[in-house]
Write a protein that binds this DNA or RNA. Structure first.
Length: 119
RNA sequence: AAAGCAGGCCACCUUGUCGCUUUGUGUUUUUUGACAAAGAGGAAAGUCUGGACACCAUAGUGCAGCGUAGCGGGUAACACCCGUCCAUCGCGAGAUGCGGACAAGUGCAACAGAAAGCAAGUACAGUUCGGCUGUAGUGAAAUCAGGUAAACUCUACGCGGUGAAACGCCAUGUAAACCAAUGCUUGAGAGCGGCACGUUCGAUAUUGGAGGGUAGGCGGUUCGAGAAUUCAAGUAAUUGAAUUCCUAGAUAAAUGACAGGGCUAGACAGAAUCCGGCUUAUGGCCUGCUUUUUUU
């Protein structure tokens, strides 16, 4: 596995997304919120979101999602997991502090790791 | 030099590594993987306007409604642009536009005045003896072709609706629903945007076909009122000709990260069918001009 993140890995289907947010489990690692479904039949797929409610400008939404995607891209192991994952950015500002965000991302991902291993 | 006016240009640059989207090359059963090229804006924004395009009838007629408004020109079109007159503002460079019509009708008008329309009328003079005419007096204006249309109104010109989630196709495909043809009687009702006209369709039967919803894919979709350069016409907006170029095309939505250098900081801000404009947000550079002051 490499550090690539091609199109196929993104979660796109509207049905699967609504299922993920409705049925999936979730936890928070401020300023991020993780939703996930673990199922052996699933391919690993991920989506990143930044709500329009909190980020009025499209530039900021793009930036938040790019930071998350770049942080996730470095973690190769998740691409082999059978998981559908959504990572949402739920703070209003502080997009400049990329360190904090990536730290939160790492924390959340390691927590997710533990969840996965329990299964 | 300071303050100001107008116009134009740029939108941090660069090297390396990793990563994203599209296209091409070539490999492979296919996928993956490889290499190469290209990859956000001047406002991509607000959705305020004018079109193209698609469907509803080839988008019709009258009324209503809405928009525009000196004059001339430009344009696919416009509420936009150019020229020019006028008005207002500014010492000025310049800026702004609420600039059609009050010889159709209705309405409105501070103060003054008898009176600013339906009711009156002071003084003097003239007189064809009629409140007929003139002068004085108030006022911007006095019985009249005064003012006012960011008052109703009138005139001229323009305007049908919906909006890329339009629309066309593929695949999946259960039922009374959908479509076509034939037949039949009443023409209920529907397209139809506010009304009327007009026009198209139109209930139940038979036969044939495969439609709608949901999820998915392809097209529409980026070659265009296109860009650059030169020449010509025009005061200009703009137009014509020649040559060259192809310049984002995503779809839970592609441009990012890390490290180094220049100068350490680098604004507003992210395409979503496509063009013309307007408006708003915003960093910097340049050019011309105006006023004031100083020096020669």
């Amino acid at each position: 596995m490499s550090t690539k993140l091609p199109k196929q890995v993104k979660l796109k289907s509207e049905k699967q997304i609504t299922l993920l947010f409705k049925e999936g489990k979730s936890f928070t690692a401020y300023p991020l919120r993780f939703h996930y479904i673990i199922n052996a039949k699933l391919d690993s797929k991920v989506l990143f979101s930044a709500p329009k409610r909190l980020f009025k400008k499209a530039v900021d939404r793009n930036r938040a999602k790019r930071i998350l995607r770049e942080g996730y891209r470095k973690h190769e192991r998740f691409k082999e997991y059978s998981i559908h994952l959504a990572i949402s950015y739920l703070a209003t500002s502080d997009l400049e502090q990329t360190d904090k965000i990536t730290a939160a991302l790492n924390k959340g991902l390691s927590e997710l790791d533990s969840h996965f291993k329990v299964r």
